[in-house]
Design a binder for these strands. Structure first.
Lengths: 202, 202, 202, 202
DNA sequence: CGATAATCGAGACGGTACGTCAGGTCTTGGC
DNA sequence: GCCAAGACCTGACGTACCGTCTCGATTATCG
């Protein structure tokens, strides 16, 4: 089932693309994701609607690219800092995450994405592959290092450990369940570390 | 300027209310939350649109009442089982939560709510008060019991501990980040418990 | 094959209807039929597009009602003048027709209709029934009177005779084939009458 | 400000031209004039849109050339048959006209043109010069012959007489006012001839 | 027990945005 | 430099729902 006439990316106008993404970014911030419309983006970007529909399947995809994919292409995430002290490093990362989630611009965009993927599995897959997956894997890599350094027990399932770190943050944020601040991030790290560090003298 | 004519709840037609909630429930399951419309509910319920707008402020509120408020009114949640074994009890609860999230009917409705609260703080507050808060507090109460029974350290912040339990589950589910099954629930409980149980001979 | 939900004419807003027809009339005159759009009518009338689509199937139907059906409902046309002098009466009618066709307002509207019915048989039927048919039949009735008064031969097919009168006028006008003025109308009547009047002394 | 780049007819690709006209012809027949699009023609002809816009000003002009101009260049029309019997000759011509108008292929194209010229005076002029004018003039020439042969009165205005012949045919056809068949053509000729032939013994 | 007032089903209304289609212009690469 | 291909901006299409409004026709209290 081939698509009827796949657009030829080599002919794609990069000025149009840039102004669409710029307009999307600005509009998410000024009116919020749920008030965002394709027509609004097109008008603000000085672009025909068709030019948006030609290259993106949905408004979610546009915003995704505008905000999130900008951060460095697909599938790569920088390694975490490694000071040798796993607790310090994890706190650094979770604090950064909290600050990002509290940044109004990122907040608006990512909340929109979160809402969108509840009804759009395709977009969800893309989001996980491009953004959440790499972030998670970077944590896992750092934990592996800590494991080798005997700061974390051998037997720990690092995927679950990572959920223990990120899960609390995202739950508070997505479900608006409570204050989300640096202190909370520190508490989570402290507690989670207790779960995974080696027993001393047991 | 008095409010034009505040709805008089005593005159409310209960058959209309019931058929609206029933229609909402059926439609969420058959077409999904995002495809749900007020007009669709009204048509299926054999009800005028105004009858919906008179009593609910938004489609989110209707679905909220149709699915979630049904479970027992506002603010109360049953206590957790208490077998004396905190690990067993927590596993029971988290397994139940996972199964609920995997139930198609609950999944569709709750995903809709999750999407909606990203842009509707009012609904978010209601959801937290009615559903998520009580669930969380029930866990906290059980943990307090365990604390008294010396199964959990005194110094633990039980709110953070609860996040450690629920956070991983909700992150996997909301962000569609990975397999969500009973084994995962067990792993989370096992790991989280390590974080909060008393040190032995340390 | 019933239409899904036929609009209930009793609920129809007469102010909306009137402003739509008024806007259509003004726009045909100011921008011409082919530049006319449903959106333009709706905007000028201060009306939702759906309100137009609810009651009319096409822009042709709106204009038809705006201009032509206004003239007195369906299927009735006033009788021709009858002075006893068939030539004088026919000249009166054909002159009036020519003047109507030369009136800019009628010209624009009727040209639009003429264009439209080339591709819309349904509208064509309506136009013939409501406007052209009655006009033609009025002529036929007058000719019958003349026949009874021995001013026209018995054996003449009055339908063909009527075409002989109107055909030349419409051809010149529709196909823009030549000057269309009162003198031409008179010539046509004079010539056509020669075809249908009784032979004298033959 | 010089004209940007006047098309140089000498460089014109004749294969492109031919396939455009062929595609136009086929599409008018298969989808009808009003459903015809420039894009459709270009796609069917395997031609860029610009190639059409370069050489024709409008879709009407393409169809005009595809169908009508094909019949023999500009401004010339073959003389009518002249058997010496004016009635027979006119019947031959009007019958041929009726048959042409009833031919589906010609019908579709010419109806499109008729619709188009209601809003495009330029095209109207071209159509009259190339097609309708010559046809009319051929009739006039034949009538002149008949006049010289005393079959038609001296005093008759032959232009009006020609309208008496063609007008009825075109009115029935363009306005879809009634059955258009050979018998009607014969009736028109018979009646019109009564209008223009010499009085006998009057 | 009848007046009266709010609710009810229904759906028309003025709007906004949708996603599609075609128009006519402009750009790119190949011949 | 014409050509095919097709991206681009524009603007209209016809549809879906929104939330408000207006209609009788039930109810269901209250004088």
């Amino acid at each position: 089932m081939a698509s009827p006439s796949p657009p030829d990316a080599s002919r794609r106008s990069s000025t149009a693309r840039q102004s669409i993404l710029k307009a999307a970014r600005e509009l998410v911030l000024s009116v919020g994701y749920s008030q965002l419309t394709i027509e609004g983006i097109a008008a603000k970007a000085g672009v025909g609607k068709q030019t948006i529909y030609r290259w993106w399947p949905s408004k979610g995809a546009v915003v995704f690219e505008a905000f999130l994919a900008a951060e460095g292409g697909a599938g790569t995430a920088p390694d975490l800092p490694d000071t040798g002290n796993i607790e310090r490093d994890l706190k650094t990362v979770l604090r950064a995450t909290v600050e990002e989630l509290c940044d109004p611009s990122f907040d608006a965009a990512f909340r929109g994405m979160a809402a969108e993927i509840q009804g759009d599995t395709e977009l969800a897959k893309q989001l996980v592959q491009t953004l959440l997956g790499p972030q998670t894997q970077a944590i896992v890599r750092r934990l592996e290092g800590a494991q080798r350094a005997k700061q974390i027990r051998r037997s720990i399932d690092l995927d679950v450990a990572t959920e223990l770190l990120f899960g609390p943050i995202f739950r508070r944020w997505l479900l608006r369940m409570g204050p989300l601040d640096l202190a909370f991030a520190d508490s989570v790290v402290a507690l989670a570390l207790r779960a995974i560090r080696p027993d001393r003298k047991r």
